[in-house]
Design a binder for these strands. Structure first.
Lengths: 224, 224
DNA sequence: ACAATGCTTCGGCTACCATCGAAGCATGAA
DNA sequence: TTCATGCTTCGATGGTAGCCGAAGCATTGT
């Protein structure tokens, strides 16, 4: 039964921690629930078997997210029922100022702006995403050629895919990797929209004033 | 937590038994769940404390129903999630042919047609119902005068309410009792729409062909 | 008044499952 | 390679909650 999975306090804490759509590692979820990693591992295996969460391997970490919006919806419904008799929960977020805003992930843009960019591309059907796989659409190709002077032949590579969903460290949602992600980041630098921070070892990406505006015009969500 | 309530198998069986909107007695729910009445009583107390079910006393029975559609909705959502990984449930209904269709409850109409009648009155705002209390509206008074020649002064009684929700034995939903319920049943008899079965002790109410049509014209739901 | 039915409360038993320590794999870093 | 980190599996423990028998109220019927 699904409800018994949600019924356990430790598992419920994990699920509510995942409710914002981000993905969390197993150990982070353990800390959220206030239990040891072993116990968390057992719980996560059950949640996965019940189809409530899905894992995604990234290096030696294992990120978990809610399988889809249906799960989140049911969880919200349960929370709604619980609220009527008097219960609640809150959720915080991680810290770190500029690094969360924009940074380099290998060679492409990550952080808030990186996630925002992929969101924008997806919502306008410039790319199609199912699970981890992302494809560039015909409209997407036209958009790139017109606005960033990026042509499809610049993106082909014998081993690396054009598009790839990469799990964002701070946002815990996907941003765009692959040759396209790298090409776009490179183009941002060429256009003087953004540049990597000069302090050695830093992964922060600083946007210029005009770069900020141009980026928002192309990929803005109206929040900034 | 609400989910832990639904998580227990015994309670889950009870809740799914209530999913069709009907009300069941505590002992029937116990049988549904395959547990003894004592255990069921404990479970029902918890479900009530959690706001998932509401009791309604009727004689020495205690009927339980889901509190509202929100609860049913969340339960459906959970069932939907469970179905994706491979589970299901079924529900049957009680038996008994003519008695379930229409019968006398004290002095008013009960059974499928009785429930159907109250449903019709409610959906057309001829009566207003909140919980157990039912009130006749102004439109309702006009409707009764026009179609059944029943005037409000015929209904006043020193001790008995005009309208009352009575829990239907077979349908497990409310039908109309009170002086109005009695007056309507009496009118049906006077109009030769229906009559109590002649076999002694029987509570069956037999509708005539024309009575059936007239009744359906006034209170039909399009199903017959 | 008495009995019968329906439901609840109380007390003790049992079984399940969450929990953690210790050890075992896998991946990435030095 | 060797070490460190992240996660999983195994085994043992303990607390919690479901469960029922017996007894206690409440309501109805005779």
């Amino acid at each position: 039964m699904v409800a018994s999975l949600v019924g356990d306090p430790a598992r419920a804490n994990m699920l509510t921690a995942l409710m914002n759509g981000r993905a969390l590692t197993a150990s982070e979820l353990a800390q959220e629930a206030g239990i040891t990693p072993q116990t968390a591992s057992s719980h996560l295996a059950k949640l996965e078997a019940g189809g409530l969460v899905e894992p995604e391997k990234q290096g030696r970490h294992r990120y978990y997210r809610l399988t889809d919006d249906d799960v989140a919806g049911v969880l919200e419904g349960l929370a709604g029922l619980a609220a009527r008799t008097g219960h609640m929960r809150v959720r915080t977020g991680p810290k770190d100022p500029a690094l969360r805003r924009a940074r380099i992930c290998y060679d492409h843009l990550a952080g808030d702006l990186g996630v925002q960019m992929l969101d924008s591309l997806r919502s306008r059907n410039l790319v199609k995403q199912k699970k981890q796989d992302i494809e560039l659409t015909a409209e997407g190709e036209r958009f790139l050629a017109k606005n960033l002077q990026i042509s499809p032949d610049m993106l082909s590579h014998p081993r690396r895919p054009v598009c790839k969903a990469c799990l964002d460290w701070s946002e815990r949602r996907h941003h765009l990797a692959g040759t396209l992600g790298a090409a776009m980041m490179q183009r941002f630098a060429e256009l003087k929209w953004a540049a990597r921070d000069t302090t050695p070892g830093s992964r922060v990406v600083n946007f210029t004033r005009t770069g900020e505006k141009q980026f928002a015009a192309l990929f803005g969500n109206g929040k900034d």
